[in-house]
Design a protein around this nucleic acid. Structure first.
Lengths: 235, 235
DNA sequence: ACAAATGTGAACGCCATGTGAACGACGGCG
DNA sequence: CGCCGTCGTTCACATGGCGTTCACATTTGT
C-alpha cells in the first residue's frame, strides 16, 4: 500500500485487490495518480479519504466475484465512487453482460500502459466536466440514482432499499425478462443463497406502491420470471 | 457500403471510412448492428437515416486527420451523434490527448471482436438503453428471445410458455421436419415421458393464435411430424 | 372402403404465482 | 438494557392458468 507523490488534482484512486498487481501499480505511479489498495468493501470505507475516493480501478482477473461485489458496493454507497474502471481478461468479456451499471469503462488485461492511462484520463475528464444527473427514466417512472428517490407520474414513491434496487435493475433493462435466479444474483448479489420466492414478495410490494394504475409496469411471464415495461416493439 | 440484415432496435451506426475495414464490418454484422459507411461529413449528412444516426464508429488508423475532423463535425451538429467510438492503433494513443471531447470511448486496433462488441453494447446502454435484441426472424414472424414476445405480421401474439418454446424451436430450424418424439425430447426435455399427441394440441393452439392467414406456417407432414415454413426444395 | 393418422373439443389436475401473515435481524431511542 | 418500528425473508394457503390427456370427428393414403 502506497501513494504517488506526483501532485494530482484528484483525490486518491481506490485500487482492488490488495496488494495491487505490479503492472497496475507501475502504470498508476508513472501516470501520477495517487492510489490506495483495498481488499474488500470494508477496506473501501475504512481507508476512504476525508474528501472521498477520486475513482476506482478494480482488477477482476484474480477474484472476479470479489471484484464485482466491490463494484456493486461502490455504486450503492451514499456517495457513489465516481469513475469505476474494470480490469478484466479477454476470457471474462462475457461476464460484462447485465453488469453494465457496475462500471464506467473497462480495459483488457494484460494492458498497454498508455491505454490504461488514456482511459483513466478520459474517464476523469468526463466525470469532472460533465455533471450528468444520473437518472433512469422509463415513461411514467423516474429514478434518481444519486438521491435514491423515485417518481411515478410525478408522485414520489417511498421505497425501501431492496425495493429500489430491484426496480432500478428492472428499469435499466426495460422489456427484458429475468428469471428469479438471475434477479437474485444480479440484484441481491452473486453469493446469495435464499428462496426464489423472495423476489415475488418484493415484486408484489413494488406493484402495490406503484399503485393500481402502474402495477402492470412489472409483468410476470409465467414459468420464466418478470419483465419491466412493454417491449420496445410492441404496439 | 452495406447493412446488416439482422433487425436491430437501434438506428444504423455511422462507420468511417468508406469502404469500412473488413474486420470492423465482420464484427458489426456478427453483433447484429445495422451500419452505413461514409467517407466524410458530407456523406454523414447525405446518408443520414430519417431518425438520425444511432451512433458512430470512427476508424482513425488509416486517415487520422479525416477521422478527427469527422468526429468534430458529428459533435457540432444540431443533433449530435450519440455514442462516438474511436478505433485507433496503439501508436496513436498520444493523439487522444486534448481531444477528450471528440469521443465517448475508444478501442485499440487490431481489436478483439468481443471487446469491440462489449464497448458498443456498453455505450449504447449508457446512452439510453437501446441494445440490439436476440431475435428469431422468419418472414412475417418475429420472436424476441429476451422479452419472450412474439409478433406475427406486426401483431403481438399472446403465447404461453410451452407454445412459445415450441414455436421458437421450430422457427429456429425453418423448413426442417421434426417427429413428435424429437420435438418432445428437444423442446420438452430429454427425460420427458408422455403421449406424443401433446404436440398436436400445442400445434393446434399455435395455429389458432397465428390466425387463419398464417396457420399454414406450421405444416403437418403426414406420418412424419411437423415443419415450420416452406420446405427448402419446394417452389 | 378400410385403417391409420391427424384435427377438434372438452375435461382433469398439477403447479406456478398471488396473497396474507409471521418470524427474526437490525438499529434507534428512552 | 429493553422496547419498538422497519425491513428482508420465509411459510402456509388459495387459485387459476395451462399443460396434459382422452374421446370422438375428420382427413389421407392405399
Amino acid at each position: 500500500m502506497s501513494a504517488a507523490d506526483t501532485a494530482a488534482a484528484t483525490e486518491p484512486v481506490l485500487v482492488f485487490p490488495d496488494p495491487a498487481p505490479a503492472d497496475l501499480v507501475q502504470t498508476l505511479d508513472l501516470s501520477g495518480f495517487a492510489w490506495k489498495a483495498v481488499g474488500d468493501e470494508l477496506g473501501a470505507t475504512r481507508h476512504e479519504p476525508d474528501s472521498g475516493w477520486g475513482g476506482a480501478v478494480v482488477c477482476a482477473d484474480t477474484d472476479p466475484e470479489g471484484a464485482f461485489a466491490l463494484c456493486r458496493a461502490l455504486r450503492r454507497r451514499d456517495a457513489p465512487v465516481a469513475p469505476v474502471l474494470l480490469l478484466i481478461s479477454g476470457a471474462q468479456l462475457g461476464e460484462l453482460e447485465l453488469r453494465e451499471d457496475l462500471y464506467d469503462d473497462f480495459c483488457l488485461s494484460p494492458f498497454h500502459p498508455r491505454e490504461l492511462e488514456a482511459r483513466l484520463r478520459h474517464q476523469f475528464w468526463r466525470s469532472g466536466g460533465g455533471v450528468q444527473a444520473e437518472l433512469v427514466e422509463y415513461e411514467p417512472l423516474v429514478l434518481n440514482l444519486e438521491t435514491y428517490q423515485a417518481l411515478i407520474a410525478g408522485r414520489p414513491l417511498d421505497l425501501t432499499y431492496m425495493e429500489y434496487e430491484l426496480l432500478k435493475f428492472l428499469a435499466q433493462h426495460p422489456g427484458k425478462v429475468f428469471t428469479r435466479e438471475t434477479l437474485l444474483s444480479r440484484v441481491w448479489g452473486y453469493e446469495y443463497y435464499g428462496g426464489a420466492r423472495t423476489v415475488d414478495v418484493h415484486v408484489r410490494r413494488l406493484r402495490a406502491k406503484l399503485g393500481e394504475e402502474y402495477a402492470n409496469l412489472i409483468q410476470t411471464v409465467r414459468s420464466v420470471g418478470y419483465r419491466f415495461g412493454q417491449s420496445r416493439w410492441a404496439g
